[in-house]
């Protein structure tokens, strides 16, 4: 279990004066589940993980792993393993030498080193110097080092960076398996598809503060709820019939519109009441990415300039609604900064 209480880290170096990387955050990452750590660049995720591992010292507050600061455990490698930086190895050593050096600190048998090498799929390159490793191999070596002590808690910072699809799936399954074995897994990733498939619980950071701390499903529901796509030849009548104070209706084209605030069953009943012909009634869940972007909209420190479309947006069918104001694939609730990046991904995160 990882417990942070009023954890604060202020970096004093730099021309712009003190930088509050982590600002009085409190959270608990519990055993038996994968806790996803999300946030824009500079939100404080890596700093928090470094504080948990004792690499940085908190300015105030505390963070403990399994009840104690990591430095006070008699056998730290057996309590917590971490992948914070794929390059945290000496390039002149072989992968096996790197793992043996770490294993020696806790009297871990060489047999376990060999096991971990096989587990991470590095068997064929274990005796090659690390400087010849690809990013993916380095990532696997880092994961191997984290698993050496068979620890109760694992901290993975962007563990799938540089991994091939097989490696990505392996990390996902590994994280799920480790959590199923009753271990605490704290995992950060910018890949929302991975996070939505791996995490049970989410902690979202923005500008060093916690923006959300809740189960994944609740996070998605809280951010956008369920939308329903409706296609009907009597669209105008049906949209009027569905209008209510808490209901948002957005037209896509003459026959298609989207409803937020009513479920499919209610819409179907209303259509029957007014004898409207329905051709489609599809519940659409808000993706994790949409929910995340909406929540962190105001907490993004490093914002990209966006893409300049080569053609006018109106060239795409359904780009405007009946009112001519809202882009078709952007719900009124979703006004994040990266609309251009997001529209094509609309259905990719379900």
């Amino acid at each position: 279990m990882i417990t942070a209480e009023a954890l604060t880290k202020v970096y004093r170096a730099g021309r712009s004066g003190p930088h509050r990387a982590v600002d009085a955050i409190s959270f608990t990452a519990e055993p038996g589940r994968v806790t996803g750590f999300l946030g824009p660049n500079g939100a404080g995720k890596t700093t928090t993980m470094r504080l948990a591992m004792g690499l940085d010292r908190p300015t105030s507050g505390s963070i403990t792993v399994n009840g104690l600061p990591v430095g006070r455990h008699a056998a730290p490698l057996r309590q917590v393993g971490a992948v914070l930086d794929a390059g945290a190895t000496h390039p002149g050593r072989t992968g096996r030498q790197h793992l043996r050096v770490l294993a020696s600190t806790h009297g871990i048998a060489r047999r376990r080193v060999d096991e971990v090498i096989e587990m991470t799929g590095l068997g064929s390159v274990a005796d090659r110097r690390v400087k010849g490793y690809s990013l993916g191999m380095n990532q696997r070596l880092g994961i191997g080092a984290a698993l050496l002590g068979d620890p109760a808690t694992l901290i993975f910072d962007e563990p799938v960076n540089g991994l091939d699809p097989e490696g990505v799936r392996w990390v996902r399954q590994l994280a799920r398996q480790l959590a199923a074995e009753g271990r605490t897994v704290l995992l950060s990733s910018h890949l929302m598809s991975e996070m939505s498939q791996t995490a049970d619980h989410l902690i979202v950071l923005g500008r060093g503060r916690i923006l959300a701390d809740m189960p994944l499903a609740d996070f998605i529901d809280a951010a956008g709820g369920t939308r329903v796509l409706v296609r009907s030849e009597d669209a105008t009548e049906l949209m009027t019939a569905l209008s209510a104070e808490d209901v948002t209706v957005t037209a896509h084209d003459a026959e298609t519109f989207e409803v937020v605030g009513l479920d499919a069953r209610t819409i179907g009943r209303r259509a029957r009441e007014i004898s409207a012909a329905l051709h489609e009634l599809t519940p659409l869940r808000t993706s994790l990415e949409e929910s995340y972007l909406r929540l962190t909209h105001d907490a993004v420190e490093h914002r990209s300039g966006g893409l300049t479309p080569s053609k006018p947006a109106a060239a795409s069918p359904g780009a405007t609604n009946a009112a001519g104001t809202v882009p078709a694939l952007t719900s009124p609730a979703l006004t994040g900064p990266a609309t251009a990046d997001r529209t094509a991904e609309q259905d990719g995160e379900h």
């Binding site: 519990e30 055993p31 038996g32 589940r33 399994n66 455990h73 008699a74 056998a75 730290p76 057996r78 309590q79 050096v101 770490l102 020696s104 600190t105 806790h106 009297g107 871990i108 620890p151 109760a152 199923a180 074995e181 009753g182 271990r183």
Partner: peptide
Amino acid sequence: RRQHDVDPTLKGLSLLRVLSS
């Protein structure tokens, strides 16, 4: 939830082990 318990009999840090490393 299941909880993974660390075996307290396993070896931990010592000056000699860290020196060897």
